[in-house]
């Protein structure tokens, strides 16, 4: 399997996707913006179509368009008196419609977008791979390097603002990071499934963990294993890699859930054993 260059590329791209998506996904889940990745995925489709129309590498146009879209969502949330979910909905539909329209203008059909909607990891080119590698490193450096600030902003905006943290700037940074992550994962799992890799590993990890740090680390590990195992499975089972990765990630979630329930009830019992807790109602 590893003697094929396309499989080497595919596994490397899967590794990057598996590591980056949960790293940024944890912040989105903490902010209760789990579906932001999905919204941005829709906008990225317009970017892809724009790349096709202008004969530019679609990853580059997708990064630009989805970043602009992500900033627009944040600004709508902050200034537009639009609630987060409505801001998301506006961009969901605009993104899909824009993508299909632009592809039509380029003389193509919506079917051409399939490779981006559901991923086409085995057709990834060396240019694509290089871009994915660079973007993934940027995401990891920012998401882990600025963890204290990003954690504070996602945990309690008001407290962060009084502490002098430029909350709006960081909110935009998180949205742009999510946009770049979507683009990194676009060729691996596809735009429609990217949000799954941002959310499912985090949802799985937090059943077992009690700290933010271990949640991020475990989610990244689960994401990486699911992505690499998914690509490998798809090679032998002759299935599409994107959906295979997502189904594997969901499988881990289902397996872990009963363990998480057991752990939580044990912790609750232990917490109840503290004498002062009994005073609290």
């Amino acid at each position: 399997m590893l003697s094929f260059q396309f499989m080497q590329y595919a596994l490397l791209a899967a590794l990057m996707t598996g590591m980056t998506t949960p790293a940024i996904g944890t912040y989105l889940v903490q902010r209760r913006l789990a579906l932001l990745g999905d919204g941005i995925g829709h906008i990225a489709l317009t970017g892809v179509a724009l790349g096709v129309l202008t004969h530019t590498t679609p990853i580059i146009t997708a990064v630009i368009v989805s970043s602009i879209g992500a900033i627009a969502i944040e600004l709508l949330r902050a200034y537009g008196h639009t609630s987060g979910d409505v801001a998301l909905a506006l961009l969901f539909y605009g993104g899909i419609a824009g993508g299909v329209l632009l592809i039509n203008l380029a003389g193509g059909t919506a079917a051409q977008l399939n490779g981006y909607l559901f991923g086409a990891i085995t057709t990834i080119s060396s240019t694509d791979l290089l871009l994915v590698l660079v973007l993934a490193v940027v995401i990891l450096v920012v998401a882990l390097g600025l963890a204290p600030q990003l954690f504070a902003v996602c945990q309690d905006e008001e407290h962060a603002r009084v502490s002098g943290v430029p909350v709006r700037l960081y909110s935009i940074l998180i949205a742009v990071l999510a946009a770049v992550t979507v683009t990194v994962a676009m060729r691996t799992v596809g735009l429609l499934l990217v949000s799954a890799l941002m959310v499912v590993p985090v949802a799985t990890a937090q059943q077992l963990t009690r700290s933010f740090k271990t949640t991020v680390a475990l989610a990244m590990a689960i994401g990486t294993v699911a992505a690499v195992a998914g690509v490998t499975t798809s090679y032998f089972a002759n299935t599409q890699p994107g959906p295979t990765i997502v189904v594997l990630a969901l499988g881990v979630f289902v397996l872990v859930t009963p363990i998480g329930t057991m752990l939580r009830s044990r912790r609750n019992r232990r917490a109840a054993a503290y004498p002062e807790s009994r005073l609290d109602v």
Binding site: Q155, D156, H159, V165, V202, T209, S211, F212, T215
Partner: peptide, 22 residues
């Protein structure tokens, strides 16, 4: 009405550490 609980588990220590940001 601030809450120490967000969407992702955090320890008491992690939450209090964000008070050191400034």
């Amino acid at each position: 009405k601030s809450s120490a609980v967000a969407g992702v588990p955090s320890t008491i220590r992690e939450v209090v550490m964000s008070g050191r940001l400034a």
